[in-house]
Design a protein around this nucleic acid. Structure first.
Length: 871
DNA sequence: ACCGCCGGGTGCC
DNA sequence: ACCGCCGGGTGCC
């Protein structure tokens, strides 16, 4: 028998998808040093099993069924025995305790994280005083001996399976075995990596059976819905009005029974009203949601709205944004009386929601929309409850939640909570995730174009938000879905598919309705324009390249031979620093700041200098870095000693809320006084946008394109995209000089200015800006820039997906012209190297999964770094 | 608990 | 009998 650790597909290969994802540099660096998670099969093998006894049944109310899964919880504070191990059922009710003799070694194993213990009660469910429990130990291979020894020292012995249980339990599926706590070594042949990848790809591909019924929106919606939007509306409405039991629950002789855990309760499990709308970007999730809000109030009736002869007064500035007159009709709200829908979204799409409400709701009806945002927001539970819609951001929500005493959003009983770009709550440790879980609502929706970012772990948070019992508790999610699936268990995968299918609607741009494409988008054509540096530029570039090679040469040896994690991280950051300089030279020599070479971090002041270098690098990389806590653009950026960058308020909140605060990205200990601030721009070399401005080959190439375009058709609008905001500063000079009207959007802009910039650009009246300077990641997804039909990519990004997403902002629903994309690449430079890496990443994503094990994953990362160093 | 364990009652065959 | 045996009281951690 081979060991479990050798050939099972692991979640690592799913994580590896991230190469095509949208990682920021600091996340990339963090990933190099991080272990790849806790649930890799290598760390999650079956160490052994033993039958134990649950005692003290008569003192507790929790009951179990034959074959039911139970959880084991340490009770170190138990006054009778500090080794106490409590046994609880799926709803968390205590069933009893593990008999103390066995609890003693279990306590040691659990407290020292040698293994996780899972229990299943095989029979004896009606016993009065005690019952057997099959215990299975899961943990890292390296802990196997320690666990076995510990058990043996107390006079027990771990076996590999339970004897006799199969006599009455005939299910031959691996799930059946799992329910008994049996070894899954006996399971059917596990899925191969390819099969699992395929299954994963298809996870959200719904065949649309039962989901093709259409529904007309309420009259208050003045936009006519496309067929697929009517289908989504119909499906969402039926999800909200459903009386069905949640997935995997059945009614059996007056009891409600969960077929996966064998758990039964008298009370009907709470209905899960809502789900995941996972349509591709541009299919109109926002419009569909607006239609849902006004079309499906209580009892399947439309939201009662007053008609008004007055035309709508539209004013963006006041925080109270009421469409029409302000009176709330009293009648018509049946049931609980909950009225308001809360929409939580990233800052970048806030204005889009307002636009869409204005655009799609008839001007003569009264829809109360309150923008709960900004310092002036009114924290009144009453006011919020009386709205039809309350719009807010993840930041506002978590910042209110942070001040526990005063979070009005958490005191309202919402009719509906909608999480836009809901995948941002994928990290359960983030404050905003916790804040979102605490919201009280009858119905819950997640809107997301990318419901699974990189692994199953992300899905857990979504289940948790939807309150899909028992998957809202980590242990049950892991036992029933995550672990079986990552170990290639077919039944586990089947369950996952049933689960996802029941609550998700996903269509892609390529989906078909009755044989026709959902949406026919205009073409998009990509041209690469090679730029040759002038002699002067080439000379400077070569100078910097030589310096860089010298620095890199110094570490190459230690990287090529094996490497210490710490060294590799700092070196990787330094390699990136050198590369940023070269990339800047390719764009414009005026971009390049002074490079302060980094040697060993010795004294704190040197460390400090290194950290300042690093944060400067991150912020100037032009990638509009996100804070990993709020997942929004960095505000008051600070860097930790472990070299991770966050917003100061976010990380301070983390430090405040935990006794032993740890870095959310790498779990290193962090302290407020060790945070290093970004010193600001003053140490930058002046970008020379003033009198001594000079052009560059790339700027010349851009300008000649723009001028030619204006000659051909003066109404054509273009996006000029760069990762370097200071490059955008430089480009502004010739744009002005040649009389272009332009606007600008970058990560540093406040919400108001952003919205204004987008609005101005989208405006088609004569004299409106024809060019938008756009920083690659500004604002994230969701922004609508369909006025543009040309995109100029000034500098290549590490990540091809980031470029695609950027193009998607104009190549989406509403675009009437073909979209032409021009990518500038400097010949014989780091940029060509980057294009190669882009291609490699894309290949990996496409055919993917040649990589299974974390070692290979690390190897792949190393290959990438090596490739990067070939400058 | 139709057990094990405890401790009091008891004591030839 | 400083034992064995009996049978009642009792019972998670």
């Amino acid at each position: 028998m081979t060991s479990n650790s050798c050939c099972h597909p692991s979640s690592a290969f799913i994580d590896f998808l991230d190469v095509g994802g949208t990682m920021t540099i600091s996340q990339e660096i963090a990933n190099l040093t991080e272990d790849s998670g806790q649930d890799l099969p290598e760390e999650n093998v079956q160490i052994g099993s033993i039958q134990g006894t649950v005692v003290g049944l008569r003192y507790y109310t929790g009951t179990v069924n034959r074959g039911e899964m139970v959880s084991l919880v340490r009770q170190p504070q138990n006054p009778y025995d500090r080794n106490a191990v409590m046994v609880a059922n799926v709803y968390g009710s205590q069933v009893g305790h593990i008999k103390k003799e066995l609890a003693a070694p279990m306590a040691y194993i659990m407290d020292n994280n040698l293994a996780r213990v899972e229990g299943v009660v095989p029979y004896g469910e009606t016993n009065k005083f005690s019952m057997p429990v099959n215990l299975t130990f899961w943990g890292k291979e390296e802990n196997r001996d320690a666990v076995h020894n510990q058990i043996r020292r107390h006079g027990f012995k771990l076996g590999t399976e339970f004897k006799g249980s199969l006599i009455w339990y005939t299910t031959q599926t691996s799930l059946g075995r799992d329910l008994l706590g049996l070894s899954s070594k006996m399971s059917a042949i596990p899925l191969t990596v390819e099969e699992l990848k395929n299954a994963f790809d298809k996870l959200f591909d719904d065949l649309m059976e039962d989901k093709t019924r259409e529904m007309e929106p309420a009259e208050a919606v003045c936009t006519s819905l496309l067929p697929h939007q009517k289908q989504a509306l119909s499906w969402m409405t039926s999800r909200e009005n459903s009386n069905d039991l949640p997935p995997f629950w059945e009614e059996k002789s007056g009891l409600y029974f969960n077929v996966l855990t064998n758990f039964a309760v008298k009370e009907r499990p709470e209905k899960v009203l809502g789900g995941i709308l996972a349509d591709d970007m541009g299919l109109g999730k926002t419009l569909t949601t607006i239609a849902l809000i006004v079309s499906n109030f209580h009892n399947g009736k439309p939201l009662p709205l007053e008609q008004s002869v007055r035309s709508r007064k539209f004013d963006r500035n006041p925080s109270l944004w009421v469409v029409g007159t302000g009176k709330v009709p009293s009648g018509g709200s049946g049931g609980s009386g909950a009225r308001a829908t809360l929409i939580v979204c990233p800052l970048s799409v806030l204005s889009n929601w307002l636009d869409q409400f204005e655009q799609h709701i008839r001007a003569d009806v009264t829809l109360k929309v309150y923008l709960y945002y900004g310092a002036e927001r009114i924290r009144s539970v009453k006011l919020l409850s009386e709205q039809d819609v309350v719009l807010t951001t993840y930041n506002v929500l978590s910042s209110d939640f942070g001040n526990k005493a005063n979070s009005p959003l958490h005191k309202v009983n919402w009719l509906r909570v909608v999480l836009d770009e809901g995948h941002v709550i994928r990290n359960p440790n983030a404050l905003q995730s916790k804040a979102v879980l605490e919201l009280q609502s009858e119905r819950r929706w997640i809107l997301s174009g990318t419901p699974i970012q990189n692994s199953l772990k992300d899905l857990y948070m979504l289940m948790s938000f939807l309150k899909l019992k028992p998957f809202d508790v980590k242990e049950w999610w892991s036992r029933i879905i995550q672990r079986p699936v990552t170990m290639g268990d077919r039944v586990g995968l089947k369950n996952l598919q049933v689960l996802v299918k029941g609550i998700t609607l996903r269509r892609t741009k390529n989906s078909k309705v009755a044989g026709r494409m959902l949406v026919q988008l205009p073409e998009r054509r990509v041209f690469v324009q090679h730029v040759t540096l002038s002699e002067d530029e080439r000379e400077e570039y070569e100078q910097v390249r030589k310096e860089g090679r010298k620095v890199i040469g110094r570490w190459k040896q230690c990287i090529y031979s094996y490497f210490e994690e710490g060294t590799i991280m700092t070196n990787y950051a330094d390699v990136l620093a050198i590369l940023v300089r070269l990339r800047q030279y390719c764009c414009h020599p005026g971009l390049v700041g002074k490079y302060t070479g980094a040697d060993d971090p010795g004294t704190p002041s040197e460390l400090r200098e290194r950290l300042i270098n690093k944060i400067t690098l991150v912020l100037n990389s032009g990638s509009d870095e996100e804070c990993a806590i709020c997942l929004d653009s960095l505000r008051q950026p600070v860097i930790t000693y472990c070299a991770h960058v966050y917003c100061r308020p976010c990380i301070c909140e983390v430090i405040r809320s935990e006794k032993q605060a740890r870095c959310p990205l790498c779990r290193a200990q962090i302290k407020t006084k060790e945070l290093v601030e970004y010193p600001g721009e003053e140490m930058q070399a002046g970008a020379a946008t003033g009198e001594n401005w000079r052009s560059s080959s790339k700027v010349d190439a851009l300008m000649s394109n723009l001028l030619k375009l204006r000659n051909e058709d003066p109404t054509v609008k273009s996006l000029v995209v760069s990762q370097f905001t200071r490059f955008m500063d430089l480009i502004e000079v010739p744009l002005r000089e040649y009389g272009f009207s332009f606007t600008r959007l970058d990560g540093s802009m406040a919400q108001k200015t952003r919205a204004k910039a987008i609005q101005d650009f989208q405006d088609s009246s004569p004299g409106s800006p024809t060019i938008m300077l756009l920083s690659l990641k500004a604002g994230g997804v969701g922004i609508n820039l369909t006025a543009a039909s040309h995109v100029f990519m000034m500098d290549p990004a590490w990540n091809p997906a980031a470029e695609d997403q950027c193009v998607d902002r104009c190549h989406r629903l509403g675009q009437s012209r073909d979209v032409v994309i021009t990518k500038f690449i400097v010949k014989d430079s780091v940029e060509e190297n980057m294009v190669k890496i882009q291609k490699k990443k894309q290949e990996l994503v496409d055919k993917a999964f040649g990589v299974k094990k974390p070692q290979d994953l690390k190897q792949a990362r190393m290959e990438e770094i090596r490739a990067l160093m070939e400058i």
